[in-house]
Each structure stands twice: as structure tokens, then as C-alpha cells.
Nucleic acid binder design. Structure first.
Lengths: 161, 161
DNA sequence: TCAGTCAAGACTAAAATGGTCGGAGATCCA
DNA sequence: TGGATCTCCGACCATTTTAGTCTTGACTGA
């Protein structure tokens, strides 16, 4: 539950990687170098074609710029700090909302339950908190993180930050 | 994205309703009365059979107690404040985790990317925040909320609480 | 021109989700 | 006491979503 889709995972990985490359972290002698789909896919062991599709949508949403031809590839279209996690997730998976109270068939009609819905208001509060959190974090915040070695239990819950 | 499943919605609605009934809010003369699936389904306009299944799993996780036979139904097994939203979601949709870094086939093996995963640590931070939020809210917090009349735009994002 | 790159779409397989059905079990009352 | 009735229960099916693959085409630079 609440798990990110693979595509969203891949998008974040790719953007983080591009941000690292751009900063010169991975290859100090040529920051700003362009990276292509294959490189990212091999680096992270993810299927090439799927990543390609993800990068296409990121390009469509102006988060990366594509360059065609040999030596082509992608680069970040903005500063890493200007790309929020919320923006990435919305680009890949559509508008985010814990409670979106709209009819499935007709975007503009409210859902069947709305007249008798007792949980809407509190859920909207939860939703706003999550939005705020995801909007406040950017790709920059994902850089230079030492990978965790310890695989902690999935039972750890409710830990205060 | 991040949208709750129908089942999760129904579970929360049902629990909130049962909490209201129990408090005497809906029918002052007999609080603690037992309610059956049909009543909840009709009250909220949700399909009976699906709600039934949801209530079954809630019973399995000891959030409600079931009583069979005529005049049977469900009641809350605990105080509303002792049932957190996180518990409900986990009961219905399985363990929650933005990033669960496990192999799909083998629960105990880490996922393919973990060795080269650059986004794990920051995502775990996000995840912990959300866990904390969902654990800190209970069914009690969902009671006595006046329904919102205004249908606000789904474009409102990143609003500070 | 040619090889390497992105772009775009159709297509398939598998999983998750939403929804349905025919019972099994408990209670009530003649 | 025994059946009628009302409830929960668990297996089942249909649809949608997701993940992944494949093909074709267009663009670019050497």
C-alpha cells in the first residue's frame, strides 16, 4: 500500500543519477555531460525499454531535455532543487490524491458517495500533509546519500523523524 | 497516484460510521447497538458484497467483532482512538511502504536494484513521515467532521497545513 | 550514408482491483 | 426441537492497471 510504481521509481533513479553526473560527482572531468538511456539502465539494472518510456514522459513534462542522434541522450532541464518529488510523481502517474472524490466515468462529477461521505474532510488533511512533504523535497535532497547497508525490518512503523 | 483503493475507503467509512453509532451520535437511545453490513452499505451507497468482504478482513485483524445470525452484525472491537488509520490501511492493503525494497518473488531477498539504488535512503525518510502521520490519526479523529460542501479543484497542491 | 540515438505506438502477460455468488453457521420462534 | 431466516464467510469471475516487449520511424553527427 502506498507503494510507488516501478515507473516512478525508475524516474527518480534516473533524475538522481543525472543530477549526480551533472554535478561532476561521478566523473569530475566533465560535468554537464549528456547521458543516454542505455547508460542509466545498465547502471541501475532496469529494463531499457521501460526506462526509455519513462524518460520520454519526463521530457514531455520539461524535466529533462532530449538530444537526438549519436552522442545524444538526456540532460536535466532545470536545477535539481527546482524539481520536486511531487512534480516527478505527477508527471509519471497523474495527479496525486489520497482522496479524489470524482466519478470514474466523468471527471467533473463528484463520486457516488460524496453526499454521505464521512471521511472526506479528515482524509483531505492527511493528503495535504503528504503533498506538502513531497513538494518540499527535491532531487537535490536525494543526492549524495550514502546507501544504507542495513536492511531494516518492514515492521518498523511510526518512527518519529 | 497515492490514491486509496475503494476497499480502503469503504473500511474507513464503515469504521467511522460504527464509531458514530456507538457514541450515540446517530441514535441517542441505543448506543453500542450492533450494525449490519446492509445498513452501512445503504447509508453510504456502496456495494453490499464488497463491503462485506472488507468487514471480514477487519474482523480478522480484530478491529471489529462479528456476530452471526439474525440481529447479528458488527461492532468495534476497540476504542475509536485505539484504531489508527495506518492499522486500517495495513489490514486492507497489506504492509504499507513507499519503498519496499524486496524482491517480488521472494519476500526475503532484496530487490534487483538495491545495490545500485540511489533513492532508497531519501525515500525511506518520506515513508517514515507518512507512517508517522497515519499512525498519529485514529478513527476518533474522523468523527464529527462537518462534510465539506465546496468541491475544491484537484489542482490545489502543496498547501501548507 | 550510416550507425546511434530518441519518439511513439501496438501488443502481451501478469497482477491487482472491483464486484458476484452460493453456501455455512447462528439465532429466533412456532 | 427443528426449521426458517438472517447473518457472515470464502471461493469465484471480470475488468482494469501495470510491467514489460517489440516494431517502426525520425533525427543527428561523423
Amino acid at each position: 500500500m502506498l507503494k510507488l510504481s516501478k515507473k516512478a521509481d525508475y524516474a527518480l533513479m534516473a533524475l538522481q543519477y543525472m543530477a549526480m553526473v551533472r554535478s561532476g560527482e561521478t566523473s569530475p572531468f566533465n560535468p554537464n555531460r549528456i547521458v543516454n538511456t542505455k547508460e542509466i539502465a545498465e547502471e541501475h539494472h532496469i529494463p531499457l525499454e521501460l526506462l526509455a518510456k519513462v524518460l520520454q514522459t519526463l521530457a514531455k513534462y520539461d524535466m529533462v531535455e532530449s538530444q537526438n542522434g549519436p552522442k545524444g541522450g538526456y540532460l536535466l532541464a532545470r536545477e535539481p532543487r527546482e524539481i520536486s518529488i511531487a512534480q516527478v510523481l505527477e508527471a509519471i502517474e497523474g495527479p496525486l490524491g489520497i482522496a479524489d472524490c470524482y466519478h470514474e466515468k466523468d471527471e467533473h462529477a463528484p463520486c457516488e458517495q460524496i453526499e454521505h461521505c464521512n471521511i472526506r474532510t479528515p482524509l483531505l488533511r492527511v493528503q495535504e500533509s503528504i503533498f506538502h512533504l513531497l513538494n518540499s523535497m527535491s532531487i537535490e535532497d536525494m543526492m549524495a546519500e550514502p546507501p544504507l547497508i542495513i536492511v531494516e525490518s518492514r515492521k518498523t512503523k511510526g518512527v518519529q523523524l
